[in-house]
């Protein structure tokens, strides 16, 4: 890593996650959060703590039942936790789902414009701004197409442009590439990395794909299942440019997978 750390007091090179988090402004802070959906049923999340620094890319991995999506909904403010505190630096975090969830009666541009309208952007500026955002995801030529005319990868890129249109510094992603083929996914990984770096976003990326987590994240957090809580976390110090095949990514993924398997087997006993 380079040494341009003058503005940050704590030495970033030190592989101490807590120090990094303490030194930078916080984007998302989750403290002691528990979530019980039905009285008498085991909690989905229990005493979960998670801090995401501003500009950080954090990947959450875990098996089914770890409450990954529940956690994202909580951070997004769509649901309220049973107990605990959640604070987010952005007023309204942007959220991307596993499905593109585009509105099929609107064009690609129309979907992005709806997010701008919700933000109160004037009619005259919406079109130009949507065009700019579609350019960010390399879809400027397809802005007039309807959703059914776009491929799965293109739809997810429109969804990314729509999330960017929310102009939130915090981007939450719920397995956004899970339904895509491997080639498209690789391309979108690169694209997301670029957008993240260019726009200075804080990203919380939920996935069950450990390799994807190691490929994308600066930090990978393993959640345990039933109840969901943080089991362990890893700082990813694989240099960019990364690909899914990078040796460092593979080595870390192997390690995380081993831990994940240990966590999963605990439930079979």
């Amino acid at each position: 890593m380079s040494t341009r750390t003058a503005t940050v007091e704590a030495p970033v090179q030190q592989r101490d996650v807590l120090n990094v988090a303490a030194a930078l402004p916080t984007a998302v802070r989750v403290e002691g959060v528990s979530q019980v959906f039905e009285r008498g049923r085991p909690p989905v999340l229990e005493g979960l703590d998670l801090t995401v620094a501003a500009g950080e890319f954090v990947c959450l991995v875990g098996a089914s039942g770890c409450g990954k999506s529940t956690l994202l909904n909580l951070i997004a403010g769509l649901t309220k936790p049973t107990s605990g505190q959640i604070s987010v630096s952005a007023e309204r975090p942007a959220l991307m789902f596993q499905e593109p969830a585009l509105l099929p009666w609107l064009t690609a541009s129309g979907n992005v414009e709806l997010a701008l309208r919700a933000r109160g952007v004037g009619r005259a500026d919406r079109r130009a701004e949507a065009a700019r955002l579609l350019r960010v995801v390399n879809l400027e030529e397809h802005s007039g197409k309807r959703v059914h005319e776009l491929s799965g990868g293109m739809r997810q890129r429109v969804a990314l442009a729509r999330a960017l249109a929310q102009d939130s510094k915090v981007l939450l992603m719920d397995e956004p590439f899970a339904a895509l083929d491997a080639i498209t996914r690789d391309v979108l990984h690169e694209e997301l990395t670029r957008v993240w770096a260019e726009q200075g976003l804080s990203v919380v990326f939920v996935t069950h794909n450990v390799r994807e987590a190691a490929r994308l994240g600066q930090r990978v957090v393993l959640l345990g299942s039933r109840p969901g809580r943080v089991v362990r976390e890893w700082q990813v110090d694989v240099p960019h440019p990364r690909t899914i095949e990078s040796p460092g990514v593979g080595a870390l993924a192997t390690e995380i997978t081993r831990e994940l398997h240990r966590e999963i087997s605990r439930h079979g006993r």
Binding site: R4, P239, H240, P241
Partner: peptide, 16 residues
């Protein structure tokens, strides 16, 4: 680690 800035985020020149 060429191209990465201090935060471990890829530098802009690199991503471009």
């Amino acid at each position: 680690m060429a191209g990465d800035d201090s935060s471990g985020r890829p530098g802009l020149a690199l991503v471009e």
